[in-house]
Amino acid sequence: MSELNVTLKVWRQAGPDAAGSFDTIKADGINDEMSFLEMLDVVNERLINLGKEAIVFDHDCREGICGTCSLMINGQAHGPAKGTATCQLHMRKFHDGQEIVIEPFRATAFPVIRDLMVDRSAFDKIVASGGFITAETGGAPDANLTPIPKPVADAAMDAAACIGCGACVAACPNSAANLFTAAKVSHLNLLPQGQAERYGRVEAMVDTMEDFFGSCTNHGECQEACPKEISIDFIALMNKDYLKSKFKNRRMVSRK
């Protein structure tokens, strides 16, 4: 256990339409066992004691599973540790005297609400457009009626591990949401239960995604930033299904 003195440059913005700027805040005496968000808690406590407003940031489970936390830390979504959400990042990854720049996830589809908090509800709209299997409560057959080969179930699970945090969008130079969308499409399209709606799903979800987000140009930054290390292979799967959907759904692009 050792103590760090760090300097934070934090993005402060009073509201969605206000101009923002960086505040420089000294954070001294930070225990390196702290998580990054616990460090921000300590900084906020000190700000309140000085009569100042606390830094607004989204967070909740602090176990890396709810996807609520975000933050660009020194230009990296969720900071420097690979496969780690901000809430699971610890101060031992930083060194004494370091300057740490903290910004919100930046993308047109994620407008800033206040300080480091952004609005990611465009993700919910993509899911609402087709990210489900229509199986209303009550009529399900016995769960073991349809065996699913273990590799298929495992691959679906790999995709389903997405926590919907938006790091993929924040890391992408185009602010594309292809990794997020592909993870949900692939989770459901791989499973036998998802086959009935497979092509309708992919078309609706990709089209909705394109209403909000930029286009994918295969930089691969999303995969690097993803706290769940979801593979961009799923984007290829989604693109394949999307292409097919244009024939299967008998709606040619030119006639749309």
């Binding site: 489900f132 299997i133 399900a140 769960a143 273990k150 179930a153 998802g194």
Partner: peptide, 22 residues
């Protein structure tokens, strides 16, 4: 009993044996 049926139908990727059963 019905919960497992319902969630499987909705696409929850529960862990499976090699034979494909839960």
């Amino acid at each position: 009993v019905r919960i497992i049926d319902q969630m499987t139908a909705q696409g929850v990727p529960f862990a499976r044996e090699y034979g494909g059963l839960l």
